[in-house]
Amino acid sequence: MTKQIPIVDYLVLDDGTPHLVANESEESGALYFDRRNADAKSGKDGFSRRRLADTGVVRTFTIVHRAAPGVTVPYVSAVVDLDGGGVVKANILNVAADPDHVEVGMRVSLTTFIAGTDDEGTEAVAFAYEPIEGN
C-alpha cells in the first residue's frame, strides 16, 4: 500500500476518517493549529487536543487566478467556520471556480486529495472542503 503523510500535522489520517485536530487552550478555549508557546487570547499555557467537526460554513472566499509556481489556477480559497468551533482556511474543491458557484454561507464538508508524491513514493495528503449536496 502506498505510504501517505498529512500535508500538515493538524490533519489526522490514521485515526478513523480523516479529520482536523486543534490545540485548545484550557484557559480560554481558543483553538490553534500550530505548535504553541502559550494562548494568544489569555497569555496562559496549557492545551489539550480537540477533534474538530468535518462540516462548516464558508465565511469568505476568493478565486485565485494568479498563483505561486506549481499551483493550478483558478482555484477557490476559503475561510470556513466549522460547526462547533474552529476557523480554518483551505481550498474548496468539486465546485466551479467562478463567483456564480461559490458563495458566503455555503455549507461544506471535509475532503482530502493527493497534493504530491516524494522521491520515496510517499503521498502528501491535503485537506480541502467541498459543497454539501442540497446547498
Binding site: 505561486a68 482556511k89 481550498n91
Partner: peptide
C-alpha cells in the same frame, strides 16, 4: 511537508 500555499488556501 511541502508548501501549503495554493493547496491549503
Amino acid at each position: 511537508v511541502m508548501s501549503v500555499e495554493g493547496r491549503v488556501g
